[in-house]
Amino acid sequence: MSAKGRLEREYLRSQHEDSPMSGTARLARGLLPKLLYAAIVIALWQTAIVVLELKEFLVPSPLAVFNALFSPETAAQYQWWTHIGTTLGEILAAFVFTAVFGFVLALLITWSDIVRGIAMPVIAVFNSLPKIALAPLFLIWFGYGFTANVTIAILVAFFPVVLNTTTGLDDVDEDLLDLVRYLHASKLQVFLKIRIPMSLPYVVSGLKISATLSVVGAIVGEFVASSQGLGFLIKDSQAMMNTPPMFASLILISCIGLGLFAAIAALEKIFMPWNRSPAEGGSR
């Protein structure tokens, strides 16, 4: 018995040895192709402008966009940090709100059939609405600015978190429930030991959707009702056919979105280490 145990152990150990590649080498392998890719896209962009003789009021050159972002004079004119701050604030407020309250609502729905009966029809109705169409209404209710924009973003981003988490909490193997039920586990124990950990992958995918939609919601809000933020800047520049700050804003918005995604992925690694271990050289 023990001889075989040793064998199995050695076999597994050999499979789980950390890869000999150093940290920097790994980083380079991940980063270099991406940088190269970006360089090619920018080169193609510049070539297209020259070859097709595109005017700046239609498509700006990469250099013009770069200048809009970084030359001291224009940067002062566009007040990037103010706009970034406003938009980022709205996005984060909406995202944190939806993450926390979306999870809590999903817990209540799966805990109590009464809550489920009340909440699910409302969620179904709201989820089928084009939520952005409500934006003008929020302008009336909450006035111009931050509150209205955050509310719109929340409305857009909230339901995917609720629905995903609810699915995750519901979708538990009956046999796994038997495993704790035969020991007379309480409902709270079933949630803490089985349902909640089981739902985490669903929670994460809900958060990823919510991150994207928070950005959409905040920008749309700024289109409709704002005097600040990257969405506002895009709309404002459009009136003067000033395309470089529009492109620059788009780049900044996608940076914010990517940053949120990266943050979620990092949280996933910290809180769900079991998901990582097979990918790093698991046996199956």
């Binding site: 145990g5 597994l12 046996s283």
Partner: peptide, 17 residues
Amino acid sequence: GLDGFEDRYPNELSGGM
């Protein structure tokens, strides 16, 4: 027969283990 495996995750083990 599993001493030394305390800190493994289940998906690192074979079906028998």
